[in-house]
Design a protein around this nucleic acid. Sequence first.
DNA 1: ATTGCAGATTAGGAAAATCTTAAGATTTCG
DNA 2: CGAAATCTTAAGATTTTCCTAATCTGCAAT
Lengths: 233, 233
Amino acid sequence: MGSKILVVDDEHEIADLVEVYLQSENFTVYKFYGALEALQCIETTELDLAILDIMLPDMNGLTLCQKIREHHHYPIIMLTAKDEETDKITGLTLGADDYITKPFRPLEMVARVKAQLRRYKMYNPNRAEDAVSPVIVHSGLVMNVDTHECLLNEKSLMLTKTEFSILRILLEKKGSVVSAEELFHEIWQDEYYSKSNNTITVHIRHLREKMSDTVDHPKYIKTIWGVGYKIEA
Amino acid sequence: MGSKILVVDDEHEIADLVEVYLQSENFTVYKFYGALEALQCIETTELDLAILDIMLPDMNGLTLCQKIREHHHYPIIMLTAKDEETDKITGLTLGADDYITKPFRPLEMVARVKAQLRRYKMYNPNRAEDAVSPVIVHSGLVMNVDTHECLLNEKSLMLTKTEFSILRILLEKKGSVVSAEELFHEIWQDEYYSKSNNTITVHIRHLREKMSDTVDHPKYIKTIWGVGYKIEA
DNA sequence: ATTGCAGATTAGGAAAATCTTAAGATTTCG
DNA sequence: CGAAATCTTAAGATTTTCCTAATCTGCAAT
């Protein structure tokens, strides 16, 4: 099954919302409305990630974060209603790996969780038993997310970070059409997207160019007009 | 039958309007003009989605939203007359999945309801007994909304975005007649429609032409004079 | 059979979406 | 800091799709 994620927030609605969205991605969620209740779970369960609210009634979320860090080094994401820069930084220096300010869009939260998990499991392959396989293979194409290598028909493709991300997303959803906007949001979660932003188009172009160097039919990435891009399953 | 949808709004006209449009899409509607009346329904009925006004006389809609979230995970859409960004965001963090500001166009509302239902049922297949499936099959025809593919008797149909939409709508309502105006509004929710606009006719023509390439009797799409088009069930 | 109207058929131009390029901005790294 | 790599922006070219409008066809009521 999916990774084990701890969620601690005294605002029930938010904790529940987070839980629902994480479960819908097949993660196993351990949800608590208070820090004290969560402590036992932290000690007894081998977690893969924690999402902690900073403002908790019984214990400061940052303290909880510290407590986790005493014995564990899986990713910790802080939730905070405050938009104060100082808090963010404090959270990060205390051992958190990312922070999300409320209010947040649920899908953005999920994207960040996945990003942290990927990074974590990359350096902890022993924890990666149920991770999204770091190596993706598809008709002549081999991608290794860990090593950031990509081979097309035995030949190495030198891809930039963004190009790599686009190709990875298309392969992960291979068969389905992915719109430019979806790609954009998967890569730059918070950034604002407008139709006049054609940066995805340009990166797609670069990708196709690099792929066409080693492949006759560079139709790997298909354009579905008015809908998006896809790689045939 | 269709999904069960809760509608709560003290403005009778709006609640009634929402009800009519949802019923016309074969949803089962549970309508209430106050939050207190709705509470019992929430406890006793296995709902699939809720539409709540924020401004209610007897209880804040957001509170109602919270109450639902305590025990249920189905999508919640908030209605609000206020166009204030803060309110919208509050609604979302409190557990709502989408919001619609009044005044709204009914068909847009229906579209959002469908979008939320699709997402919800996708992750809750046990609830998907009557979900709109991403793949539609009908006498030799296979449509996959995700991959944007369409096969007619094993042969691929290359459809444009609009053609695809028209065929999808006709198939989703297969058996019943759909007028050109209905098709138009399903596809271009906001745009103005006038009889002199024969664009649907033209797209239907293109569809029929593409289908006739692989089928002897291109009577898949029947014309009901003076009423609309339909695909036999 | 005639007539009126709804839909069908075309084709060409308009509009929209994507592609291509290249220059300038930014980031990275030594 | 400076060079190289990468990213973003923007403008114009290209491709695909859509819409309009004029004409044609055929249903259906009289």
